[in-house]
Amino acid sequence: MPRPLDHARRAELLEGVIAYIADRGLAELSLRPLAEYLGTSSRMLIHYFGTKEQMLVAALETQRPDIAALFAGIDDPEVLKSRLGQSFTLNTTGTASISIRVLLQVLGAATVPGSPFTAYATDAIEVLITAMTETLTRINPSIEDPEAAATLLISGMRGVIMDWWITGDTGRITRSVNLLVNQLF
């Protein structure tokens, strides 16, 4: 008879998986070193999650922020500009930075043909674009193509955050964020 799942332990493991990826990266992820890091065995990870890919997607799902809440109630372009400018700081420090760092790794891995992360990455991008499109439409109904504007903004922010983590050039990146945000309005 299979051993029943300990849901509290499963949640603990998922939190540990995110910390591991943030600390050591997704590219070289292997079950044995991950299991050792988590204080368990690779067999137990398979018991809890099925496959490595299923485990990673489950861990990512625990990190998904409420995107709609980030932009809810914003009806003023200046408030949106401020919120986006602040998001650079929030997404590069503290606990949010772990989620964003892991998400960026997954988005990169999803570009490989046949990636097990394609569906997750597609959904993550669609959620962001939809929320931003709705916000831009609410703020300025005269924007000719709000979905394209939202795509440019979200993709640009994602790019400058990744650039900052690679280069650490805060001054250049801050200027770039401000330029990107101000281009829309």
Rank of each mutant, 00 (worst) to 15 (best):
P77I: 07
A35F: 05
M157I: 09
P113W: 01
D23Y: 06
P33S: 02
S82K: 06
G94D: 14
D163A: 08
P116E: 00
R24K: 13
T92F: 03
T170V: 15
A121C: 11
N182I: 10
E147P: 12
P2T: 07
Y48M: 07
I166Y: 05
S30D: 10
L26C: 02
D75S: 12
Q105D: 01
F117R: 00
L26S: 04
S87E: 07
I173T: 11
P2Y: 04
V160Y: 13
I46E: 10
V57T: 11
S115D: 02
E61H: 04
T92V: 04
D75K: 15
H47Y: 08
V112P: 11
A149G: 02
R101G: 07
R3T: 04
L38Y: 00
L13K: 00
Y120M: 14
G114D: 01
A131I: 00
T40C: 11
P77Q: 08
L104D: 11
I173W: 09
V160T: 06
T135P: 06
G85W: 01
L128P: 12
G171Y: 04
I46V: 14
P141L: 02
I98T: 06
L184Y: 05
L153H: 03
T118Y: 12
S176W: 05
H7I: 08
A148F: 11
R64P: 14
P4M: 08
I21G: 01
P141H: 02
T130Y: 04
I21C: 02
A35R: 04
H7M: 09
L34E: 02
N182G: 05
G50L: 08
R138Q: 12
I125T: 13
Q54D: 15
L56I: 04
D6H: 12
T151S: 08
L34R: 00
Q183M: 12
I139E: 03
G159R: 06
D163G: 08
A19T: 12
G73P: 09
A148L: 07
L153T: 05
T111Y: 09
I74E: 10
A11F: 03
A119D: 15
L184F: 13
L90I: 08
V106A: 13
R9Y: 13
T118F: 10
L179I: 11
R24Q: 06
H47R: 14
L103T: 13
P146D: 02
P2K: 10
E126Q: 10
F117E: 00
A149L: 07
S41Q: 03
V160L: 08
A150R: 00
M132H: 04
I166V: 10
H47A: 10
N182V: 07
A68E: 10
L38N: 01
E36Y: 03
V79H: 05
M162I: 15
P33V: 03
I129W: 04
G156W: 00
P33C: 04
I74Y: 11
A27C: 06
L107N: 12
I98P: 08
T93Q: 08
A96I: 14
D76K: 03
T95W: 12
T89Y: 06
